[in-house]
Design a binder for these strands. Structure first.
Length: 536
DNA sequence: GTAGGGTTAG
């Protein structure tokens, strides 16, 4: 029997949950997803489900909820196991705890146990479970939970419906969002908003805009979801024009727009908007500050970064690992390496991203030894490195002239940590060999690469050729870049220099003509410091 | 006593 078969009871549910192939489920869904079925079903619980809860159960549930709130899941589980008179709220509280702890295995297990124990899931159960599996490998269960919700007529709930929309968006299925939405009875602004962000998550900006235009009432979240979607689709001007039209803005909408500019490397715009935000009287939060610091780092604006730091301290903005990482990264990008280390050393906790940022900060400042030391510390405290860690570490070795160490770590990536070397790692190694003058080694590495070299890899070789005045290999690298049809002003400029050094003036003239033809602009040299200084 | 929509770092 399939999960959606009429007359199905709790007892056989877990069988279908385990064994029903996806094809069958889809068939069941296509039958069950129609509006008629939902409206025919009774929404109100059966009289047997409305038994008054005993004081005993109520107080146990309160105790479990308190433990869940304090993130003490083991204690909550122990108490739950001891409970003799569980009700659906007890189960939901446990599910909610596992969901908040981002433990999808336990959410799934607990849900199965609930079904096996013949408890009837309610609206709370479904929305909690859906959230508990979202953005995890367990999200493939969305369809089956939907099928189960239909059987229990729970798909008509605004809570379940909104969670289903987010769930289907998460598994990349835009085709069913409208249908799931149509099944909801008494749709409110939150369910409309879920539909907007669902479409936006899947890049369907047109659909999202249509929903936005159709909705009976909009709130600040509707606007922010739309703007956020346009930003994700790189339509920053559209996002800003929507932002300007908003009648009411809050800290989230301001932050979304500020961070949107960052994502498009428009750091000055980002900082200008932050100034407007402050003027508007909206209080920034840690999300905002993290974005603002990112912008300060992006345009090397140390002074503003320091002011933001002072503001955070003065107003006691809660310090979290993300904000501290933004802070240390800002100092590193603005060249104040000492303060960057100071911030990093005073961090109460570090995660993978903050370690990567610290190692990257060493790389940027040519501190190869320090990078190796930080990497060792990171491993010692049990943080698993990822691809970014190695990009930063190899780059630090390259900038610090640590050829042997770089080589060793490059080789250990896969064997020791199971991370496959990507194009970016090869580019770091080409750069490392190249800087050290081992041009032949760099060339051989490119030749033996498991992928087609890109402009970054050739660019690394080209840069090395420039550094070590290797004309032939440099020309070869530049031609490869030319072949990739990714005109890069830097490649032309290196080629110009190499030919100029050789005194090959005809080649120089040819190149200049080619640049003109291809509208390649000469790379502008300049620094943030100069551009900010007043002319004398 | 338990649920749904928009924001941050490498």
């Amino acid at each position: 029997m399939g999960a959606g078969t009429a007359g199905e009871e709790n007892g056989n549910f877990h069988m279908s949950f385990y064994s029903a192939p996806m094809r069958v489920m889809q068939k069941v869904l296509s039958l069950r997803i129609s509006r008629d079925v939902c409206t025919l079903s009774a929404i109100t619980p059966k009289s047997s489900d409305r038994r008054p809860t005993s004081q005993h159960t109520l107080s146990w549930n309160r105790a479990i909820a308190r433990l869940v709130l304090n993130h003490q899941m083991q204690k909550a589980q122990d108490l739950f196991d001891e409970m003799t008179e569980k009700d659906i709220v007890s189960w939901n509280t446990m599910l909610s705890g596992y969901s908040k702890a981002r433990n999808p295995e336990q959410v799934y297990q607990c849900y199965l146990d609930l079904e096996r124990a013949a408890f009837r899931p309610n609206e709370y159960t479904m929305s909690i479970v859906l959230h508990g599996i979202m953005e995890t490998a367990f999200n493939v269960l969305v369809q089956q939970i939907h099928a189960r919700a239909i059987c229990l007529s729970l798909n008509v709930s605004v809570f379940v419906g909104s969670a289903l929309i987010r769930g289907y968006a998460n598994v990349g299925n835009p085709g069913v969002l409208d249908r799931v939405f149509d099944e909801i009875l008494g749709r409110d602004v939150t369910s409309w908003n879920a539909l907007i962000s669902g479409y936006m998550e899947l890049g369907c900006t047109g659909e999202a805009q249509r929903v936005f235009d159709d909705m009976p009432e909009r709130n600040v979240v509707s606007w922010t979801s739309l703007i956020n979607g346009y930003i994700a689709s790189k339509r920053i001007s559209k996002a800003r024009s929507m932002f300007n039209k908003m009648s009411e803005r809050n800290v989230v909408s301001w932050t979304v727009m500020i961070s949107g500019y960052n994502q498009n490397a428009m750091f000055v715009e980002s900082l200008k908007l932050f100034q407007l935000m402050v003027k508007s009287g909206t209080q920034p939060n840690n999300f905002t500050f993290s974005s603002v610091l990112d912008a300060c780092g992006g345009c090397s604006c140390l002074l503003l970064g320091q002011q933001v730091h002072a503001y955070i301290l003065k107003f006691g903005i809660p310090d979290d690992v993300i904000l501290s990482t933004s802070l240390l990264d800002m100092y590193a990008k603005c060249g104040d390496i000492d303060t960057a280390f100071c911030v990093s050393e005073s961090m109460p906790e570090r995660n993978l991203v903050s370690w990567n940022s610290i190692i990257g900060c060493c790389a940027r400042h040519g501190l190869g030894e320090r990078a190796l030391k930080e990497f060792k510390r990171m491993i010692a405290v049990g943080v698993e490195p990822d691809r970014v860690t190695f990009v930063n570490l190899l780059s630090a070795c390259g900038h610090g002239g640590l050829v042997t160490e770089g080589q060793e770590h490059f080789n250990s990536m896969e064997t020791k940590y199971g991370i496959q070397a990507e194009l970016e790692h090869y580019a770091c190694m080409v750069d490392l060999y190249g800087r050290a003058g081992l041009l032949e080694k760099a060339r051989k590495l490119i030749k033996g690469m498991p992928f087609e070299p890109d402009v970054i890899v050739w660019g690394a070789l080209l840069g090395a050729c420039r550094l070590h005045s290797s004309f032939e290999l440099g020309e070869f690298a530049a031609k490869e870049i030319y072949k990739l049809k990714q005109d890069n002003p830097a490649a032309y400029s290196v080629l110009l220099k190499i030919n100029g050094d050789k005194g090959a003036w005809n080649s120089v003239a040819e190149l200049r003509n080619l640049m003109k033809e291809r509208h390649v602009k000469k790379q502008k040299a300049g620094s943030w410091i100069e551009s900010k200084m007043d002319p004398m």
